[in-house]
């Protein structure tokens, strides 16, 4: 009788894991809401994970609620599979779920990433989970959370535009570096997480689902496949991606991938290497596309935002510009 009662109360015994099944369902519901309203920040009951908050606890919750034993999981940090944080998170999930480790972007079902979108264009059926340290793109513009919510609700992004305009006036260009604000499906302004500007066009019209999750801030948002994602800029100020004249990966020679500086023999940061280690390795092995389609031109025709954002201002550049185009041409 007592045993029976206990079972009745407790349900089936919980599988030992990082969090319980009911919680995973809650996360999946939040993810579905996010997919239904692209770019909208869905509050959720973020759980405490076995990693520090700020260490990918949000992404981890999403990954754990989606991953199964059959899934092939790729985890990267700064584009690297072998970085300490990536290795740690991957180990955690694999040990608890028993899924397959994967480094080849093409083979992965779920890719959890911090600060990068892989160079390899993602395909239908893949899920990209981005870790988000600060979910609110308006945080630096208005402090009050109620006001941020109102601005999103009414698509009142005038202050955001003014901020960008002032930036241009003061500095001659938009100084936003990583985490460049984007307009999703002509409706919500969203942070793409601190990915470089280089990666921003990859979100536009992507075939994969992108889920962005902030554990500490308890918000999940998403970009469903084939969604317009347009970086905020002005007609006469083309969106600029990172580019350094003459720089190329010292390993694979690529100049059309995101590269980061590395110390050379002289101890100076004078050489460059791909941040996406999987793509770099495959380039060297001749197993990667020779060109990377950063922009799918058909998808870049963003829907116009509703009132009161000035419609003329969000016409995106057809191609992301590079600041030194003239010099390198």
């Amino acid at each position: 009788m007592t045993t029976h009662l206990t079972t009745e109360l407790a349900g089936p015994p919980p599988a030992p894991g990082i969090f319980d099944e009911l919680s995973k369902r809650e996360i999946r519901r939040a993810v579905l809401s996010g997919i239904a309203i692209p770019g909208y920040q869905v509050p959720f009951g973020s759980r405490e994970m076995p990693v520090a908050r700020g260490w990918g606890s949000g992404g981890l919750q999403v990954t754990l609620s989606l991953v199964s034993e059959k899934s092939r999981l790729k985890v990267i940090d700064q584009g690297e599979d072998a970085g300490v944080n990536a290795a740690n998170l991957r180990r955690l999930v694999v040990n608890h779920v028993g899924c397959e480790e994967e480094t080849d972007t093409r083979e992965a079902d779920i890719i959890q990433s911090r600060h990068r979108i892989p160079e390899q264009p993602l395909r239908d059926g893949q899920v990209l989970v981005l870790q988000v340290p600060g979910a609110e793109p308006l945080a630096g513009i208005v402090k009050e959370m109620d006001e941020q919510r109102r601005m999103h609700a009414e698509a009142d992004y005038a202050k955001m535009w003014v901020r960008l305009y002032e930036d241009v006036v003061h500095n001659g260009l938009v100084t936003a570096a990583a985490g460049y604000p984007v307009l999703v499906e002509g409706r919500y302004i969203m942070t793409p997480s601190p990915i470089p500007r280089w990666d921003v066009p990859k979100l536009n019209g992507s075939q994969a689902i992108t889920i962005l999750s902030a554990g500490r801030e308890k918000r999940i948002f998403a970009v469903p496949p084939h969604t317009h994602v347009v970086p905020l800029t002005f007609e006469d100020r083309p969106f600029e991606v990172e580019h350094t004249p003459g720089a190329a990966c010292r390993l694979c020679g690529s100049a059309d991938t995101y590269i980061v500086q590395e110390p050379a023999r002289d101890g100076q940061f004078s050489t460059w290497a791909c941040s996406d280690t999987d793509f770099c390795r495959r380039r060297r092995a001749g197993d990667a596309p020779a060109t990377v389609p950063h922009v799918q031109p058909t998808a870049l025709q963003a829907a116009q935002p509703s009132e009161p954002a000035p419609p003329a201002l969000v016409q995106p550049a057809a191609q992301p510009a590079r600041r030194d185009q003239e010099e390198t041409a």
């Binding site: 700020g54 260490w55 944080n85 601190p194 990172e242 941040s275």
Partner: peptide, 21 residues
């Protein structure tokens, strides 16, 4: 403390973008 700890994670991808700007 989570936020403080996150500062110890690599940020070089973001940093390249900052330097470029």
């Amino acid at each position: 403390t989570g936020y403080v700890q996150h500062l110890k994670l690599p940020h070089h991808v973001e940093y390249r973008s900052v330097i470029e700007r």
